[in-house]
Each structure stands twice: as C-alpha cells, then as structure tokens.
Design a binder for these strands. Structure first.
Length: 306
DNA sequence: AATACGGGGAT
DNA sequence: ATCCCAGTATT
C-alpha cells in the first residue's frame, strides 16, 4: 500500500536510474509518428537487438508514410525478412495507405482512431500516443506489466504477471504528471535490464524500497506452461508458413509443385492438399497471391504481386 | 479464455 | 532443448 507521499520519491529514483543506465536507442531521439509506428510494429514480440538493424534499413528504404504507401507490398515483405510474424508487415503497409488516403498523410492521435488501425492494439495505441505525440496514456507492455505486478502484488511465481485490469490503475497512480515519454522509456529499460523475467536484480533496482517482492523474486519457482502444438511432418504449421513466405521472398512466382519440391515434401501422403490449405490461409492474409503466368498456369507470388 | 502467429539469441 | 521477446486478431 504505497503512500501517496512516497510517489514523487519513487518517480525520482526511477528517473535518476534511467539517467545513468538507460539503453541508447537511436530511434528514441526525435521520435516522429512514422518512426515510432514502424518501430512499435517491429517490436511487437520481438527483441530490441533484433529490431535495431532492421529498423534502420527499413526506414532507409521506406522513409515516410508516403514512400511506404507507394511501395509494392512485396517489397515491404522482403524488407521484413528475419523479423517473423510477417502479417505485421501487411498491417504496417495497410496503415500507411490508410494514413495517406483517409488522414491526409498524418497519423491521428485519438485512441479510438488508432485502435481501428490493423495490427494496432491497446499497447501500440498507448505507445503511439505517448512516444509519438506526447499525449497522456498508460502503457502496459510485457516489461511494465511485470514491474507493476512485482511492485504491488505478492507473487507465487517468478514470471507471474497480474491481469491488465489489476495493473492499469496502479500504473496510472505512479506515473508522473509530465514527461511521460521519459517515464515509460525508463520503465521499459528497467524491465529489460534489471527487473527481468526469470532473473531479477533487486540489488540494483531503484524501486527496491517500495517493492513488495524486493529480494525474494529469485526464490520463487518459475512457472512453465506447456502446450504442444499439432505438427505436420514433425513441425508446427507456423514453421511451414514461415518457410513458404521465405521461399517466395527468394523467388516469387512458384507453382505448387515447385513449392513442394523446395520444401522437400512429396505430393503423396496428403502433403499437397495440406500445403494448399496453408497457401490459402496466406492468401487470405494477403501475404501471398495467385497469378497466372505466361504459360497459363497458376503460380504463387509474394504479397499481392503488383 | 484459448490459440495462432516467427525467428533468433539467451539460458 | 527450452525460454523469451516494446502484442494482436481470431475463434
């Protein structure tokens, strides 16, 4: 039960820690709506270390909403190579077109409008408001959820996180009146560097004096939930999906037979119909399209094949 | 409330 | 070999 009088001290401790230990992430300087959007889409479920080089290259190739909206989806999907969750690339490209066509080239700052954009949920909408526009909001990503959970709730597991409904009020209560950008960068860095998922470094943590779990996190058991996915030929479907998209990145315009051959699958034992079903799903998500080539036969292409 | 969705580095 | 990650959409 954190006394209100302690909150300014807690804020100061966090901000001072940030001043000394923050990660130097170049896209945090001069954050424009476009740069924040691209970075946040890339960072969904994807580590900073993996995003950093890709983001740089992506922004160089597509420097603005206008450039991204004008680009063929195929090129965007190629630039996404290695990041995973490829549908995010489609979402991002669609957002660029929406911004150009419906919002006059400017990303809106209203919560409800941001949430209507494809691939933008509660987290990304809040991050855009705070980081891109300097507007007030409560950001709850995996790092901040963990910090708020450990700070206020006595936990049973090291990697336990309370439901968002129980965290939002707490997060709002400890956030400062102004300069939310620095505040949330600080919390994210703290979660990434100190209050980590499986190993907490409470001795280095500026929140230690107020944290109900200080010093005991690493004594808690790690909770593991095991759920094994259905597999085809020993591999989960999303791995096959990823392989197909990667294959079409390398050379777009392959027949079903060529795809099966590249995947080292026989047309026997139902592989063909199974792969066709996956391709149909990819087609529905616009990651793949079917075209008729000069010989009059169907080939699969990356994106919508403009 | 569960599940699908990637890929690579950390442990 | 398994865990983890600046989550979102669908069922």
């Amino acid at each position: 039960m954190l006394p209100v009088a302690q909150i300014p001290k807690l804020q100061q401790a966090v901000l001072q820690w940030y001043h000394q230990h923050r990660r130097e992430l170049w896209w945090r300087q001069q954050p424009t709506p476009y740069v924040v959007l691209v970075s946040e889409m890339m960072l969904q479920q994807t580590q900073v270390s993996k995003v950093a080089p890709k983001l740089k290259q992506f922004l160089q190739q597509f420097p603005s909403f206008e450039a991204l909206a004008a680009a063929p989806l195929e090129a965007v999907l190629r630039a996404w190579q290695g990041l995973g969750y490829n549908r995010r690339a489609v979402y991002l490209w669609r957002i660029a077109r929406i911004v150009q066509e419906q919002y006059g080239g400017k990303l809106p700052g209203d919560r409800s409008l941001l949430l209507q954009l494809p691939g933008v949920g509660e987290y990304t909408a809040a991050a855009l408001r705070v980081f891109a526009f300097g507007l007030p909001d409560v950001i709850l990503d995996t790092n901040i959820k963990r910090i708020i959970s450990r700070l206020f709730f006595t936990l049973r597991y090291r990697n336990e996180v309370m439901p968002v409904s129980m965290l939002r009020g707490k997060a709002a209560k400890i956030q400062p009146e102004r300069d939310l950008r620095q505040w949330y960068y600080a919390l994210m860095d703290l979660g990434s560097l100190v209050c980590r998922s499986t190993v907490a470094h409470c001795d280095q943590c500026p929140l230690q004096p107020w944290c109900v779990n200080a010093g005991r996190v690493n004594d808690l058991p790690v909770y593991r939930q095991r759920r094994q996915e259905p597999t085809f030929q020993g591999l989960p479907r999303r791995i096959w999906r990823g392989r197909i998209v990667e294959l079409l990145r390398q050379h777009s315009g392959l027949s079903i037979e060529q795809i099966l051959r590249h995947l080292q699958l026989c047309s026997e034992d139902g592989a063909r119909s199974w792969v066709e079903a996956v391709l149909q799903q990819l087609e529905r998500e616009q990651l793949v399209a079917v075209r008729i080539n000069s010989s009059g036969s169907s080939v699969y292409v990356l994106g919508q094949g403009e």
